[in-house]
Write a protein that binds this DNA or RNA. Structure first.
Lengths: 219, 219
DNA sequence: GGATGATTGTGAAAAACTTAACGACTATCT
DNA sequence: AGATAGTCGTTAAGTTTTTCACAATCATCC
């Protein structure tokens, strides 16, 4: 129960799940050891950054050797609380919501979507990707106390209303895929992922931040 | 043709599409003027950051007044190249891909998905969200020279192979939704959006970075 | 068992980004 | 017209994040 190791930078924290997945891959492939350089090429993060990130957790590697995959894996499993499952609800079973439900989440993951909610009568009562679809009128009853986080994939007009209900039901984090910037009390964490903005941003970068043409061939 | 105004920080560039959308909203609502404080509450970005961001483009506002919505809108339209449409292809018409196709992209947007590609015979020849679905075997012929960016929503096992074909076909940017970290030549820009990692990161933050409970009620 | 090459962990520097603070200016009210 | 409240643009400070560079250490080979 080590509270107060808050010294891990947020930028590092965001990369941890990425590292975890690739270490898992390596382990499945039977790889015994890995260097920060190899890892860097796989996850596209500078090797010095990787070493720095790892170092916040102590000395995980050995000089002149690299990192032991087995050890790294068990360490990350512990750190990312892979044993303890976080329960999640998904609101809005449209195309995007359905995509989430079909993701094979439990693999390499500490989260489980327990319930999905929608208003469409055809979907209610069915299971999608193994997740039961409930009517949104039952949101409060089902979520109350039991669910930690919510994935919001509803039309943006419904976003704030549903959000308020989620907050009242005791959810502490929301992954918001709607274009609406929802308002929540200070103790609720919201991460926004806005698909349309991501595409626009990519296009802006293409036009205004041209990348170097590199004549060097990678080895 | 102002090349070399590269002085806009990347963090700012990423926020521009967000600003643009909200300014658009305000304009539709018939609002005449807006302050950085109001905008801040709407987009959830600190007001000083907004003023700083805007200032990279010169003096867009007036002291003691705020910003003229009309002017701001026309400025951003120009800056974000909203008049010139960027052609995009989407590869992989699964649930996530379909979600993208149904997005009403042309509204407030300078991008258009011209073609979608898949292998599923039932989908080929149809239109989804107004976008024709083609067989992936025809990728090179259709894309060649005509398409600037691609949205990658295929299974991760296919990601690198498709990527290589896209690069050969002259695409310069890829929005990668697969968990695979694809490898491309230096002059190709890739933005990764990894849904599973986003959820894991949210959960990690919930556990390790509890937010302040604020007794103050917002006005 | 010593020499060689590889690799970590980290101090220090640099770069990138955010926030505070305030002078200068504007609009509006009385 | 003067006072008041509001707001920008920006300087400077603060914070966070990345990167460099190298001593310390380890594995391996002859």
């Amino acid at each position: 129960m080590d509270i107060e190791q808050h010294k891990i930078p947020q930028a590092t924290a965001k990369r941890l799940p990425l590292y975890y997945r690739f270490i898992n891959n390596l382990h499945s492939q039977g790889k015994q050891r890995v260097s920060s350089k190899e890892l860097s090429e796989a996850v596209k993060v500078d090797s010095a950054t990787i070493r720095r990130d790892f170092s916040y957790f102590g000395a995980l590697g050995k000089k002149g050797y690299g990192y032991n995959v087995e050890y790294l894996l068990s360490f990350f499993r512990k750190t990312l609380d892979q044993d303890e499952i976080t329960k999640v609800a998904l609101i809005g079973v449209g195309n995007l919501g359905t995509a989430f439900l079909h993701y094979n989440f439990m693999k390499n993951n500490n989260t489980k979507i327990e319930y999905a909610f929608d208003t469409n009568a055809e979907k209610i009562g069915t299971e999608i990707g193994g997740v039961p679809v409930k009517h949104i009128d039952d949101l409060e009853d089902i979520v109350k106390g039991d669910i930690t986080a919510a994935i919001l994939t509803v039309p943006s007009s419904a976003a704030q209303g549903i959000t308020d209900r989620l907050v009242k039901s005791g959810v502490s984090g929301i992954l918001n895929f709607t274009p609406a910037r929802i308002t929540v009390p200070d103790h609720i964490r919201v991460h926004h992922i806005d698909l349309s903005i991501e595409l626009q941003a990519l296009v802006y970068f293409l036009k205004h931040y041209p990348l170097e043409e590199n004549t060097e061939q990678e080895e």
